[in-house]
Simulated scan of single mutants.
Amino acid sequence: MTDWAAFAGFTGLVLAVLLSLAHFSRGVPHAEGTGSAAPAAPDDADSDPAQNARVDTPDDPVSPPAEPADSDGSADPDTVSLASFSVGSTDASPRPEPPTLAGGDGADDADPDATAGSEPESDRATPPGVTAAPVSAASERPASAGDLPPHLLLANVALSQAFLGGFLGLGAWYAGVPAAALGFAVDALPTKLALGVALGIALYGANRVGSTVSERFGIAPDEAVRESLTPRTTAGWVFLFAVALPLIAGFEELLFRGALVGAVAAGFGVSPWLMAAVSSAAFGAGHGAQGRLGIIVTGLLGFVLAAAFVLTESLLVVVVAHYLVNALEFAGHELFGW
Rank of each mutant, 00 (worst) to 15 (best):
S279E: 06
L335F: 01
A321E: 07
F85H: 14
A158Q: 11
T2W: 03
G33L: 12
P98T: 08
R226S: 05
E227T: 01
L101A: 06
T131P: 02
P61V: 12
N156Q: 12
D70K: 06
V213Q: 02
G250W: 10
D3V: 02
L13G: 04
G33P: 02
L335S: 05
P39H: 05
F163P: 02
L21Y: 01
L316W: 05
V317K: 12
D108L: 13
A180L: 08
V261S: 08
P96K: 06
D56E: 12
G146Y: 03
G205C: 11
G288I: 07
A116I: 09
E119M: 13
P149Q: 09
W173E: 14
D105F: 02
A38D: 15
P120E: 00
A137V: 14
H322T: 13
A50H: 06
S47Y: 00
K192D: 15
G106P: 01
A40G: 01
G171R: 04
A38Q: 06
L168P: 09
V17Y: 03
T212R: 15
A224V: 10
D91S: 10
L195C: 05
P96E: 06
A40K: 01
G104H: 05
S211F: 09
A285M: 13
D46F: 07
V320F: 03
E67H: 03
G299L: 14
T34I: 05
S74D: 15
T233F: 07
R95T: 03
G12F: 11
S93C: 05
A266Y: 14
Y174N: 07
V320L: 10
A185N: 10
P94L: 07
V135C: 01
A308R: 04
L15N: 10
P231Q: 15
A249I: 06
T230I: 03
S86F: 13
D44W: 00
F256G: 09
D43N: 04
S93M: 13
L203F: 04
A179T: 07
R124C: 00
G165S: 06
T126P: 00
L148V: 08
V62T: 11
I295S: 06
P98R: 14
L305E: 14
L229Q: 08
D48I: 15
N156W: 07
D111R: 15
R95P: 04
G129K: 14
G33H: 06
T11A: 14
R208F: 03
A277L: 09
Y323F: 14
D111S: 10
F184V: 05
G106C: 11
L335K: 13
D113M: 12
T298K: 15
T131C: 04
A224T: 13
A107P: 00
P112F: 07
G337W: 03
H151I: 04
